[in-house]
Nucleic acid binder design. Structure first.
Length: 426
DNA sequence: GGGGACCCTCGCGG
DNA sequence: ACCGCGAGGGTCC
C-alpha cells in the first residue's frame, strides 16, 4: 500500500451559469466522477485524484498525489518514507498546484463564455430558449479522447449507472495504481496497451461487460497498433492538448468542418463505434463542437420539438441521423454539440435538481412535504391531459420523490426534526 | 437499407 | 411472491 499526499484547497472564480459541476458531471459526459456524502466530487485524472466543490462564486479544487510519482507502475513499490524524508523527495507543492490549476482550466474547458453562447442559441431557437433556463452551466468537458472512446463504447444499449460501474471496473483491474487514501485504493484510467492481453475479452465478459467486451478488446488492439498520437491528431486544432498552441480549424459548412468529418470517419473503423459513439468522442474527447450525437433521447427531442419523425425521416436511419445533425448545426452553429447537450440534459430523467434546489433553500422538512403534495397535484393534472407523456411524467415524479427521501435522511443525520409517520422498515 | 441479435440489470405490470 | 417484458445515450451482420 502506498499513501498519498493531499494538497491544499485552491479556488477559481466561476459563476454557476458558466459552469455547474452538479449538472455537468452527472449528465452522461464522463462516467467516472463520484460525489461523496459530503458533497465533494472526485475522479482520478492525469496521475492524481482531483477533488471539487462549488459555491456561488468559486470552483474549489485540490489534488491527491501518489507519494512517489517516479515509482508509478513499478512492480515493487517502496513503502512510503516518513514525512520528514518524504517532503524532500517530492516535487515542490507549488509546482503540483500549478499543474492542477492548469488541468482544471483545461479539463473544464473554461475559455468559452457559456452565458454568451446560451444567449446566441436562445435568440436562434425558441425551444432552446424555453428549456435552457433551468439547465444553465452545462459545459462540454475536454476529456481524454481514449477515455471518452472507451466510455462511449460501453454506453451502447446501456444505462448510465451500469456504464459507470463498468468504467470503474476497467480502472480497478487495468488502470495504474495511484495509491491509497483514507485506506481506499485509487486507480487512473488504463491506457490502450493495458487492454490488449489475450485474456482481456474473456475477463471483461466475466466482469459483466457483455458483448462490449469484444468491442473494447478489439478497439484497444487497433488503437495500440497505431502511432501513439493517432487519436490526438484527430483533435480540433482550436482545442489542443494541454500546453499546446491553438490553431484555426476553418469555416463550418452544414455537415461540419473537414477535420471533424475526418475524425468521425476514422473513428467509425473501430469496433463498437458507430455514428453516435464517434460523435460523442468527437465532441467530448476531440474538441469538435459541431459534433451532434443523436441517440434515442435526441431522436425523441428531434421528433417532439423539431418536426422530425415524418415522411422521409420517419425512422432513425443514417440519412436521418445526418439530417438531425445538420438541422442542429444550421440552427445553433459551430458549437451545436454544446447546445445539444443542454437539451439532452434537460430531458434526462435523472435530473430532478429543481426540487432539490428548493429543498436546500427552504431547509424545512414540513415545507418540503407541502411542496411534494403540490407537485403531486400538478402531476395528476398533467397525467389527465397528456396520456402520451403519462408514464414519463410519473416516473420522473417518482425519481424526484426518491431524491427527496435522500434529502430527508440527510436532514435526520444533521439532527433535524423527524419525519414522524411514514417510517418504513429497513 | 431494414431488421434482428446482442450482454446484462432493473423497474414495472400481470 | 414470482416471472415475463421492455428499456437503457447502439452497433454489427
Amino acid at each position: 500500500m502506498r499513501h498519498m499526499r493531499l494538497t491544499d484547497w485552491q479556488k477559481l472564480p466561476v459563476s454557476l451559469t458558466e459552469l455547474c459541476i452538479d449538472t455537468t458531471l452527472r449528465c452522461g459526459q464522463s462516467f467516472r466522477w463520484r460525489k461523496s456524502e459530503e458533497g465533494e466530487w472526485s475522479c482520478s485524472l492525469n496521475g492524481r485524484v482531483l477533488s471539487l466543490r462549488q459555491d456561488q462564486e468559486c470552483l474549489h479544487y485540490r489534488a491527491i498525489f501518489p507519494a512517489a510519482a517516479e515509482s508509478l507502475g513499478a512492480a515493487n513499490t517502496p513503502l512510503t518514507p516518513p514525512p520528514s524524508v518524504a517532503s524532500t523527495s517530492f516535487e515542490p507543492v507549488l509546482q503540483d498546484d500549478e499543474g492542477t490549476t492548469a488541468l482544471v482550466k483545461h479539463y473544464f474547458n473554461l475559455a468559452p463564455n457559456l452565458t454568451d453562447l446560451y444567449e446566441q442559441w436562445s435568440s436562434a431557437d425558441a425551444n432552446f430558449k424555453k428549456k435552457a433556463p433551468k439547465f444553465t452551466g452545462v459545459r462540454i468537458l475536454r476529456q481524454d479522447a481514449w477515455e471518452a472512446l472507451v466510455g462511449f463504447i460501453c454506453s451502447s444499449n446501456n444505462n448510465i449507472a451500469r456504464i459507470s460501474q463498468m468504467v470503474e471496473k476497467l480502472c480497478i483491474h487495468y488502470g495504474p495504481y495511484l495509491g491509497d487514501f483514507d485506506s481506499k485504493p485509487y486507480y487512473d484510467f488504463p491506457a490502450p496497451q493495458a487492454l490488449t492481453g489475450k485474456e482481456v475479452e474473456q475477463h471483461l465478459r466475466e466482469l459483466g461487460f457483455g458483448y462490449r467486451a469484444k468491442y473494447l478488446y478489439q478497439t484497444a488492439l487497433m488503437v495500440a497498433g497505431k502511432e501513439d498520437d493517432w487519436l490526438d491528431n484527430l483533435r480540433n486544432p482550436e482545442s489542443p492538448l494541454l500546453g499546446q498552441l491553438a490553431k484555426s480549424a476553418g469555416d463550418m459548412p452544414e455537415g461540419g468542418r473537414e477535420g471533424y468529418r475526418k475524425a468521425h470517419e476514422e473513428l467509425l473503423a473501430l469496433q463498437g463505434v458507430g455514428p453516435k459513439v464517434a460523435d460523442c468522442v468527437c465532441l467530448m474527447g476531440l474538441g469538435w463542437g459541431e459534433a451532434v450525437p443523436v441517440d434515442t433521447h435526441v431522436w425523441q427531442i428531434a421528433q417532439r420539438d423539431y418536426k422530425f419523425g415524418k415522411g422521409k425521416h420517419s425512422s432513425l436511419t443514417k440519412a436521418t441521423y445526418d439530417a438531425v445533425g445538420n438541422k442542429f448545426r444550421s440552427l445553433w452553429g459551430k458549437e451545436a454539440g454544446w447546445a445539444h447537450s443542454v437539451l439532452f440534459t434537460a430531458d434526462l430523467r435523472a435530473f430532478s435538481e429543481r426540487l432539490v434546489a428548493k429543498i436546500e433553500v427552504k431547509e424545512e422538512f414540513q415545507d418540503v412535504k407541502a411542496e411534494l403534495e403540490g407537485a403531486a397535484a400538478e402531476v395528476e393534472t398533467v397525467v389527465k391531459s397528456e396520456s402520451a407523456e403519462q408514464k414519463r411524467v410519473k416516473r420522473e415524479f417518482q425519481e424526484e420523490r426518491s431524491i427527496v427521501k435522500i434529502e430527508e435522511v440527510v436532514v435526520k443525520k444533521r439532527g433535524g426534526r423527524q419525519p414522524g409517520k411514514r417510517r418504513r422498515k429497513a
